[in-house]
Every structure is written in C-alpha cells, then in structure tokens.
C-alpha cells in the first residue's frame, strides 16, 4: 500500500483525522469504562488484546468498510446508495449508546463541515441526501471525498484517530502511564495497516463481525452506576 498526498491533502487529513476535532469523540469509551470496572481490562496487555480483537473482528472494521463504500458512492454520485448505507449503519448499531454516539458525532461533524466549506451546494446536496441523522463514518467520508483524500489515507487516519481516542480513555480509566499508551499506539500500527488492506478486497457479503464482548459491555455500560463517559 502506497499513499500519495499533496500538501493540501496532508494538512486536511491532519485536521479532520485529529482526535481533538471538536465533535466529542473524547466523550466515548465504547464499553471500556465498563470493562475496566468489571476487571476484564486492567493493564496494557489486556487492553492491547481487546483493541486488536476489535480491529480484527469487530464493528470498527465494518465501519471502515462502510466509509469506503460511502466514499465510492459519492465519487459516482450514487446518492440513493449513499442514503442506504447511512440507514444501514443506523440499523447495524447494536446498542442505544453506540447508535447515539455515531449520530451525535456524525451530526456534529456535518455542522462543522458546513462552516469549513461554506457555500458549497454540492456538499449540502450530499448531506441532505443522506437524511438526518448522519452516522459518523458517513460524515467522515463526505469530508474526505470533498478534499480528494485518497481512500487508504482516509481509512488509516480514521482508525488511528479511533485508536488514539480509546487509548487516551483507557490511560485515564485503568490508569496507565502516558508513555505506555504511546507505546501501544506504535505497536498496533501493523494491525491498522493490515485491516485497511483487508478492507480493499472485502465484499458486501463479508460485512460480518464477532464482538459479543463489546456488545455486552456497551449494554451493561448503559446502567453503570458511576460514569465519566457516554458509552
């Protein structure tokens, strides 16, 4: 896999792939808060196993595959299927918290985009055709497509940003040292690259996941007594 980037591409992806983009990603732990409380995750090794499993078999892999599909729909102006994939993602969200997170981040991202790219009738037409609420992966693909960011770059940045967020949450929750978190981020780089290359050849019939642990943790988080995070 080779990435080609213009200076503008590079700066755009640094901005929209940043974990500190103000769309609220830091509010969500995706079940980790529950898993730390019940002792399933308690050090960097259990955290690494969890994140590796989620990337290899989980819903985040399907999200990334949908970004690719939505990006391609925008490219060929297939607005009907763009909307279908947005609906598909809403129905695919396993829990109320995960659905709410995807919608909140998607809708915030779209509001931000309207300010970053003012007076773009093309963008507005695409946003409207998705129908409200917009899932975060769909909103992300709108931005990447608008700024002509190549799909591999877009997917690597997306997964990296997701991973950074969850490691940051875990550093607070477990707790772990900041350096341990950064080491983990480096160690998981080959997994990110592997997943992006798998997504290249994934067919619609291969959109499966195996994340019983995530599903249960997210459901149980909904009634967790003391919470810092919204998922």
């Amino acid at each position: 896999m080779e990435l080609t980037l213009t200076p503008e591409n590079f700066l755009h992806i640094l901005q929209i792939g940043s974990p500190s983009l103000p769309i609220g990603a830091y509010c969500y732990s995706e079940g980790l808060e529950m898993l730390v409380e019940n002792g399933t995750i308690n050090d960097s090794s259990t955290l690494r196993n969890w994140l590796t499993s989620e990337l290899t078999y989980g819903a985040i892999r399907v999200d990334a595959a949908i970004i690719k599909r939505s990006y391609e729909c925008i490219h060929i102006q297939d607005l009907e299927n763009l909307q279908n994939w947005n609906h598909w993602l809403s129905a695919f969200r396993e829990t109320e918290e995960m659905r709410a997170a995807s919608w909140q981040m998607g809708n915030s991202f779209v509001s931000l985009l309207k300010n970053l790219i003012p007076e773009s009738s093309d963008l507005l037409r695409l946003i409207n055709s998705c129908q409200y609420p917009i899932n975060y992966p769909i909103a992300y693909s709108l931005a990447c497509s608008h700024w002509h960011i190549q799909i591999h770059t877009a997917l690597l940045a997306y997964l990296h940003s997701w991973l950074t967020n969850l490691i940051t949450s875990s550093v607070k929750l477990i707790p772990l040292g900041q350096t341990i978190g950064q080491v983990l981020l480096i160690e998981l780089q080959p997994v990110l690259i592997q997943i992006v290359s798998e997504i290249d050849t994934m067919k619609d019939d291969d959109l499966y996941c195996c994340n019983w642990g995530l599903s249960l943790a997210s459901m149980q988080h909904e009634t967790q007594y003391s919470r810092l995070f919204r998922s």
Partner: peptide, 8 residues
C-alpha cells in the same frame, strides 16, 4: 483466539 478472548 475468538473462543477465549474477552472480546469474542
């Protein structure tokens, strides 16, 4: 892996 992992 899947059989034993907490995530699976």
């Amino acid at each position: 892996d899947i059989f034993h992992s907490a995530h699976g």
